[in-house]
Nucleic acid binder design. Structure first.
Lengths: 211, 211
DNA sequence: CTGAGACGGAACGGTTCCGTCTCGTCTAAA
DNA sequence: TTTAGACGAGACGGAACCGTTCCGTCTCAG
């Protein structure tokens, strides 16, 4: 038995994966880094970026503060690295064959994210924080916004290719319509939605696109 | 001359209005309260609610901390009171006579607010903060959301009365469409808009409503 | 003229967090 | 078996704020 992971008291999960060392930057490789990252996002959702203290993150992760400072030089660097890490692997592409299917899948993905505990609190928080923090705004725009925008434009272009949308469809407006109403309802107004809400929203969106 | 306002060094504005005392809660009546409120919003936009320190507000207002604690018992109470105060007077109603005119006026109002320095930073910040602060969420929902929602529903009902919209128009979706795309573009994605953006947006909205 | 009270300012003790540093422990490679 | 290094824990000095309390000044009603 070459690798017997010692029972870490603060990481009760049975992580049997081989611990791999990172040569470059530490990006969620070993179990300590994983525990720190998980604690970071929990803490971020609980108190927000401004109030987030690395001391609380360390305690929550069952780690020492030195373990954090050994990996990232500051809170901002840590945030940027971790956000970027989770942003890249959240980019699967779907092609359901129809515009309606693609739109519904797109909305379902947003809906799922904004209903989860951590993202629904973290996303508005980082959004507000990026208004004061250029570096944070930068990574959010490049790693998150551009990825999502790419998916949306791909969705529209496929529909144009299929002939489901006119070639001169107003892409700028369509992008805002795709995510705007749902984000408004789930993240801003925060009122409950009927079970068929996404279906009705999809229908209205298709009508608006075609107009 | 019954009232000669002494030249306060920290309030250089020529406020010639008669200083009136508030019997109930202090709501922007005398010059000191005004200075504190102004400093509060400036500070709130600069550093956000979480990082806002009453010490900084007092310094910015050219006031002592005691002047603040004499008016409000805590940072949260102060925030709630001031937000409520500015929320009530931001509710004029417009009836342009046509649905298109009403929608464009509604969008123009949001557009104006989200382009100003203070609201564009304060609104997303308080929104994120209200996810962790029930009392703050309460005042935002009742004093801001409900007011705005009332204006939007009034807009829709007038259009139904005029015959511009079918009586069974999906109000729930329509409300999300009214504010969602514009908020998404101005407050979330934060990309520049063409001068005719509001016009195009209005057209698309009307098309979606009618569908 | 006098007294009440709000004012700006400064200090207080207590708390929290920062980033560094030092322990003693445990692991894994040599 | 030895040993280098990462580990958890936490003490440390410094900084920032909290909410309170005091000071001396100023305004204004009586």
């Amino acid at each position: 038995m070459p690798n017997t992971p010692a029972p870490r008291p603060a990481t009760p999960g049975p992580s049997e994966q081989p611990v791999r060392r990172t040569p470059g930057g530490p990006v969620l490789q070993d179990s300590v880094t994983e525990a720190i990252a998980a604690a970071f996002f929990e803490e971020l959702a609980d108190v927000g970026y401004a109030r987030l203290s690395l001391e609380a993150v360390a305690k929550r992760a069952g780690a020492g503060k030195a373990a954090i400072y050994r990996r990232w030089p500051s809170k901002l660097d840590m945030t940027v690295a971790l956000i970027r890490a989770v942003a890249v692997d959240a980019s699967e592409i779907e092609d359901t064959g129809t515009l309606r299917g693609d739109v519904l899948a797109f909305l379902t993905e947003i809906d799922g994210a904004l209903r989860h505990r951590l993202p629904s609190k973290i996303i508005p928080d980082l959004l507000a924080e990026s208004g004061r923090n250029p570096e944070l705004a930068q990574v959010l725009m490049t790693a998150v916004r551009d990825t999502r925008r790419g998916k949306a434009t791909g969705l529209l272009e496929r529909a144009v290719d299929r002939g489901e949308l006119p070639a001169d469809v107003d892409r700028e407006l369509a992008l805002d319509f795709l995510a705007g109403p749902l984000y408004w309802r789930l993240a801003v107004v925060r009122t409950a939605t009927a079970p068929d809400y996404l279906d009705r929203l999809t229908d209205k969106l298709l009508a608006a696109f075609a107009a």
